[in-house]
Design a binder for these strands. Structure first.
Lengths: 239, 239
DNA sequence: TTCATCATATAACATATGTGAGTGCGGGCC
DNA sequence: GGCCCGCACTCACATATGTTATATGATGAA
């Protein structure tokens, strides 16, 4: 199996063959989750973490008034709940937005890595730090960008993240979210999501039909979304 | 020196005497930063991380139009930029909101910890994971709570975090932020921050004069802010 | 003292975004 | 083949929050 996590880690630092083998053998089994089912529930205390091999997933929380907020969108190569290894109790749920294929990694295996493979440990730690950097960027966008800019920013980010794991086709990505789900991730109403999409289309920045989203003018889209990709850390460093 | 980091870590797991000694000796020097000065600049590539011993600090980013967004408020016991150990390049600045006393920890010392002290490594990793959990909670609040609820939530959180390091006085904390700074952290205009504060005062939920903020009705304030403290992970687990 | 500065506070007005309702289309299912 | 049902899309209207401006009071400098 070509593990998309390895693909991603190798863009950030060198992985030894031994480390790759360790990662591979940390996987205890493969699991498939249907669309619209929880991968992990809020309140769970998982004894294993889920590495997404295929599909889209979302971290989310539901409020008293029924509203929902999505705090992360995950794609192939992402550990959707690596943090549960140390945080223990899930403070949010993780939902499969599409059918998902998942590699299951027991926490015991991760703990073993922390005692025997410091460099690999640092790379796993790094994955969660990039999650945090993305959270910060979303906070910036939510707090200080217009809805249109926020949407543009989100599209730019998702594009690069999918590209990092070889899931782009030219300027086109698969975006299997409904407008309601998009609203929950950007903190907008679905009506306004639609308005904003019309605007991006009218400006000739994107095309989106069915699942296929195409970036028509990357440069201008990045400008509208005030997007700079440094926070994604998609470059080699000694870590 | 009684290190407030140790104080905080010990609420989350047991620390051996050896581990405490290692942490203590990882500190290369103490540094003092004036209010309104940067502790680290955006774009820096620090070779050491800063552990806040006293004072308040903020992670922030400034946008093209001059707007600012604060993505974290830090208090005693917080590593303001532990993530720079692996992220390498700072994707935001860190500002001293008050005079700050800082323990400087070289990245080389942290790397050494990752090779020799797996359990301590996990606890440092945990610190950054809690940062991430707080980011997620802020995303939830920004995306789906009213400005008033968001403010209430923020106050509840800060109170508990200060309590964890023994910096509360009954129901009172020191809150040395201007309303403009509060606005930058909640993503609001300063005018609206003021409106919201008037409302919380009128409701008899808080008092705030000078630096001293008192929570007058904790239960109702938590309800208004839809606050539940699990994400702060201020309880013992084997990690 | 006097003056500048900065933070809080308030008012009037502007606008981005939310709400509630409704249309139409396409795909799955009996 | 017909019928739901979810989803995209739009409209009219409501409102939370932003903007600009001004007043007031503390604080510190000259």
């Amino acid at each position: 199996m070509i593990n998309p996590l390895v693909l991603k880690l190798e863009q950030r630092d060198r992985l030894s063959d031994d480390e790759k083998r360790v990662l591979e053998s940390a996987i205890s089994r493969i699991r498939v989750v249907e669309a619209d089912e929880d991968i992990v529930h809020e309140g769970d205390r998982p004894s294993e973490s889920s590495l997404l091999l295929d599909g889209f997933a979302a971290r989310y929380k539901i409020f008293s008034n029924g509203r929902r907020q999505i705090t992360a969108i995950h794609v192939a190569g992402d550990f959707v709940d690596l943090h549960s290894f140390l945080l223990k109790t899930m403070d949010h749920g993780v939902l499969a937005l599409t059918p998902c294929r998942i590699a299951v990694v027991p926490h015991a295996a991760i703990e073993k890595i922390t005692t025997e493979h410091p460099h690999l440990t640092r790379l796993l730690w790094l994955s969660t730090l990039v999650d945090g950097a993305i959270h910060r960027e979303w906070l910036n966008a939510m707090g200080r960008l217009s809805a249109t800019a926020h949407m543009a920013h989100f599209i730019c980010e998702l594009f690069l993240r999918l590209k990092a794991v070889g899931r782009t086709d030219g300027d086109t990505i698969q975006l299997p979210l409904t407008q309601a789900e998009l609203g929950d991730t950007l903190g907008l109403s679905t009506v306004h999501v639609n308005r904003v999409l019309q605007e991006l289309r009218k400006e000739g920045l994107i095309r989106w039909q069915g699942d296929a989203l195409t970036i028509l003018d990357r440069e201008r889209l990045e400008k509208v979304g005030e997007f700079t990709p440094t926070y994604l850390n998609l470059h080699h460093e000694h870590r």
